[in-house]
Simulated assay, not measured.
Amino acid sequence: MVSQFLLNGQWNEAMVRRYVPPLLVPRILSTQIHYQTGVQDIAIWQPNESGIFSCSSAWDLIRQKKDKIIFYSHIWHKQVPFKVSFFLWRTLRNKIPTNDKICSFGVEPASCVCCMSPGLDSSEHIFITAKYGGKKSSTVRVQHMILRDTLQLLKNPALSEFNWAELITAVTRCKQELKISVIKWEKPPKDILNTDGSALNNPGKIGGGGILRDCQGNLVYAFTIPLGIGTNNQAETQAAAHGIYWCVQHG
């Protein structure tokens, strides 16, 4: 609470400097506070006349608004389905992946292949999985991602002498199948600990978490912890180590 940073009605500078980022300290110390005992602190969002924070008022601070285009008001309309509006918007901005658009990237549409697996024979298949059971896999999206990755490979000097003709020949022998698999968590015969870790960059800020359940599926312990700076592998390992250490300490 703000009152915890006041001393005899004035800012407790030592405490402010202890908890507040240095760049904000002068602004806080220059702010006059009229302290009233027994009255709760209220946060005032100055960019908004009402004093209440809103996402729109925050956006107004950090982005530069462009002039409204009247024609777009007919496209982005509540009576028009979103996917229709989005398609029209992409069309007007020349963002539709037509053959001409693909050619502008320096790649002929005919050279866009639908998988990247050299060495497969005709009996082997490529599986494109659908993440959610009731939804269909988007072949167009898969092709786009593969084209993007292929373009990145072509720009790699180390692959300038790669035999792409053999790769395309192998790819033409591949088949595509759509398969939906149900993946679910099952109760283990005894207590089980699941952990995970992640990194914002590699290396970068890392963190981890985990959950421990008994053989009946009941929650025993759950945690989430910051792990400082490191790699994604360090995050995974330290998260597992934290969970295992807790289990050992509690028998």
Rank of each mutant, 00 (worst) to 15 (best):
M1Q: 07
V2L: 15
V2G: 08
Q4R: 08
F5H: 04
G9I: 04
Q10K: 07
A14T: 12
V16Y: 03
R17Y: 00
Y19D: 12
P21D: 09
P22Q: 13
L23V: 09
V25S: 11
V25N: 03
L29P: 06
L29E: 07
L29M: 05
I33L: 07
H34A: 10
T37C: 03
G38R: 03
G38D: 13
I42T: 13
I42Y: 06
P47M: 05
P47C: 06
S50W: 02
I52P: 00
F53G: 06
S54P: 08
S54F: 06
S54C: 06
S57R: 01
W59T: 03
W59R: 10
W59S: 09
D60F: 01
L61Y: 01
K68E: 15
F71C: 11
F71V: 10
H77T: 09
K78T: 12
K78R: 11
Q79S: 13
V80I: 15
V80G: 09
V80E: 06
V80T: 13
F82G: 03
F82C: 12
K83E: 14
V84W: 03
S85D: 10
F87Q: 08
L88S: 04
W89F: 11
R90H: 05
K95L: 15
K95I: 01
P97F: 00
T98C: 03
N99P: 02
D100I: 04
K101D: 09
C103I: 09
S104V: 09
E108K: 05
E108F: 07
E108S: 11
P109Q: 06
C112E: 08
V113Y: 11
M116L: 11
S117F: 05
S117M: 07
L120A: 04
D121C: 14
S123E: 14
H125N: 15
F127C: 15
F127L: 15
I128H: 14
A130R: 09
A130K: 10
K131D: 13
G133M: 06
K135Q: 15
K136Y: 11
S138G: 02
S138E: 07
S138Y: 01
V142I: 14
Q143W: 03
H144T: 14
M145L: 14
I146L: 15
L147S: 06
R148M: 11
D149W: 12
T150Q: 01
N156S: 14
N156C: 15
S160I: 11
F162R: 07
T172M: 03
C174M: 11
C174S: 14
K175M: 10
K179T: 15
S181V: 13
V182W: 08
V182C: 04
K184A: 11
K184V: 12
W185Y: 12
K187G: 00
K187H: 05
N194P: 01
T195L: 02
G197T: 04
S198G: 15
S198Q: 02
S198D: 04
L200E: 10
L200G: 01
N202E: 10
N202G: 04
N202M: 07
G204L: 07
G207T: 07
G208Q: 03
G209K: 05
G209Y: 05
G210C: 06
I211F: 02
L212V: 10
D214N: 15
D214L: 02
N218T: 11
N218V: 00
L219H: 09
L219G: 00
V220C: 06
Y221M: 09
F223G: 12
G228H: 09
G228V: 08
I229D: 01
N232P: 03
N233I: 10
Q234K: 05
T237L: 12
Q238M: 15
A239L: 05
I244S: 07
Y245G: 01
Q249Y: 04
